[in-house]
């Protein structure tokens, strides 16, 4: 199942996901305010939003 889906990966969407996640990480690098668990939630959010937008 994964193989079939991997072909559908849109580069622009992946770019935007990378942009959003790295920005989030850089911010947290300085302030260390967000826990790992919350970071994972936020990252999932970014992925889901971007993928939905690209449809």
């Amino acid at each position: 199942m994964n193989e079939a889906l991997k072909q559908e990966i849109d580069k622009k969407t992946l770019d935007m996901i990378e942009f959003g996640i790295l920005r989030l990480e850089r911010k947290n690098e300085r302030t260390h305010e967000v826990s790992d668990g919350d970071m994972i939630k936020k990252i999932c959010n970014i992925i889901e939003k971007e993928v939905e937008r690209s449809k």
Partner: peptide, 18 residues
């Protein structure tokens, strides 16, 4: 289920790239 599989694919692909 398909949606989540898709998100998973993106997460893994991004990890690879990073």
């Amino acid at each position: 289920t398909i949606k989540n599989a898709n998100y998973l694919a993106y997460a893994e692909k991004l990890y690879e790239r990073l």
